[in-house]
Design a protein around this nucleic acid. Structure first.
Lengths: 342, 342
DNA sequence: TTGTACGCGTTATCAC
DNA sequence: GTGATAACGCGTACAA
């Protein structure tokens, strides 16, 4: 019961069925050139013996792994797990196998990149706040097709780059705050300062500028780890010139700000309005529920995988660098309100 | 730049270095029996040509993949992603490669099980609210070593079964509610009704019994999908005999109850106290923050991987069925309070 | 220290 | 239809 069975090979099955290994192979691969009775007999023996072909040997023979690497950052962050969900679902439906690579630090990044090259993955989807190792990613690009979701690849152009209307999304939600009457705004970003984040910040700046608002320099916050962000927010909240609204670059950092604001005894939105970006499930767990910009995260995961596999299956080499923009949409909820009367 | 390089083989390197492929193989595997000058020369050529050995061929030869399957349910649920984090970290540090299998439905379950057998994974960690396909899991058990985290395997005994003090945890948190003065309790469980959930429910029952409390039969809720749970909670809240406290079998369902309670305009904990189990990150995002039972989720992921790899590396066949219990601990936060005076 | 020859389990290419 | 036989890319006894 508990003993691990010795592995059978295709030759064992051939012997039991009194045929050559070629015939068994044909049955295994649904090749029509096999006598029906023989096929049935062989299939029965395969089932009976619980024979399972060795995919390594198979891949070695065919020269293809039908394997897709999915590089993601922190998996406990729902942004990444949503993308995985979307990408995985498409991969499987197309007969590809997803290899999930957790690159929460530069060491892992390099490890998984090398590993995927060794394993001869057919392609890779990369979604990470930042890729650190230029040499590694360059080698990855030489080994397989790449698709990026909101990620910079150290200057390497992927086959496709998927992103959303970052600037417009933040512009609109900032406008919403301004139209509620807020005049003293602050902006919370994370590090490193990628293109995606720059676009969002630009949206904030443009909205302020369009409505003739200025903001203090120390009202623009940055942080990488939860702790840094937390401290920045605390300093902001306790400062003389406390803003009446805080616009965050994503829901993750908005969640951290939310906790800190609560901890300091302030009310959202009465004392300060708060906004995010992503529309993760936690946005509706928060109380008040978070006003945020929704982007089709899972759909981007699906599309990334779909485009990658299409290019793989068509064996054509499309020109790298196609950019796809997905729409973003402001979702009004409870965390924003007019500022308290002064 | 965008062209995928044709793959080099160990023979190409051997030719370029004027040595046999065995020597290159030795260099690749850090075999000391190689002339230093020659080693250096070969390494240079390897770097220069960006040669990367093919791990499929390597595994085929050695007969070992050093690969561990991690079967998990819904990856967007932080319970599962925390376990993955812990397990992944240990796997990599021990030179094993984690293959993450998302078994959100019976079809995927069977697919991934067959796939892992084909890929000749060295072992598997299973963490799922339920395994459906008995035949598949049985075959998996015949193909590799299994470790289970809070999961039933259709009667198959894994090498190790890791779990927490389910009954004691719920007993203690129920006791907490009773000692706050609650006399009208309800319990929210999910489906399917696994051993883990039975133990938790038993803890609830025992606490009630020890304190001479009875509860109405319709105060015990069940649900599988978010929608079912939501409806059950709504019915409970709107019923004549509304409880003053709701004890949930995990944080996930507590989160759903929390949203529904808010939506119905009730206050937590003033109108109803709420408790969970797991202590996921969302427990502190909720407002009020959730009183819950903490279990060492990530640590269980680490231990599961550690035990599995130890048994694999030692090549001994330990007796299956060892059970490890981890402690659980009540974390008092804001979602529980004495019931409102009648 | 180095090279030769074979095996790993499968697919593909031939003949028959 | 079917069956030998040669790849696929590497590790590894074994011999030198």
């Amino acid at each position: 019961m508990n003993t691990i069975k010795k592995k059978l090979t295709i030759d064992d099955i051939a012997r039991l069925a009194n045929v050559s290994r070629s015939t068994v192979s044909r049955v295994l691969n649904n090749n029509p050139n096999v006598n029906e009775a023989k096929r049935k007999r062989i299939m029965d023996i395969i089932d009976e013996q619980h024979f399972v072909p060795n995919s390594m040997a198979r891949n070695l023979g065919t020269g293809s792994t039908r394997t897709i690497a999915i590089f993601v950052g922190e998996i406990t962050n729902q942004y990444f797990s949503e993308i995985i969900r979307g990408a995985e679902e498409v991969a499987i439906s197309q007969g590809y196998f997803p290899l999930i690579c957790l690159i929460q630090n530069p060491g892992r990044e390099q490890f998984y990149i090398e590993e995927m090259i060794q394993q001869r993955a057919s392609g890779a989807i990369i979604v990470s706040s930042s890729i650190k190792n230029a040499a590694s990613i360059r080698q990855l690009a030489m080994s397989m097709s790449l698709v990026s979701i909101q990620s910079e690849l150290c200057g390497i152009a992927p086959l496709y780059y998927l992103d959303t209307e970052n600037q417009l999304g933040i512009y609109n939600i900032t406008k919403h705050l301004i139209q509620l009457g807020h005049r003293n705004l602050a902006y919370l970003s994370t590090l490193p300062n990628t293109t995606v984040l720059e676009e969002r910040y630009a949206g904030f700046c443009k909205a302020c500028s369009d409505f003739h608002l200025s903001f203090a320099e120390d009202h623009v916050l940055h942080g990488y780890h939860k702790e840094d962000i937390s401290v920045s927010v605390e300093n902001l909240i306790l400062s003389e010139n406390r803003p009446t609204a805080l616009c965050c670059c994503n829901d993750f950092s908005a969640g951290i700000a939310y906790q800190k604001i609560r901890q300091l005894g302030l009310r959202i939105p009465e004392d300060i309005s708060l906004t995010g970006f992503d529309d993760l499930p936690i946005a509706t767990i928060m109380n008040p529920m978070l006003t945020t910009v929704k982007q089709p995260i899972r759909e981007m995961g699906r599309r990334a995988m779909k485009l990658l596999i299409e290019s793989l299956d068509n064996a054509e080499n499309p020109v790298s660098g196609t950019v796809l923009r997905f729409p973003s949409e402001v979702i009004l909820r409870e965390s924003t309100a007019p500022p308290a009367a002064i």
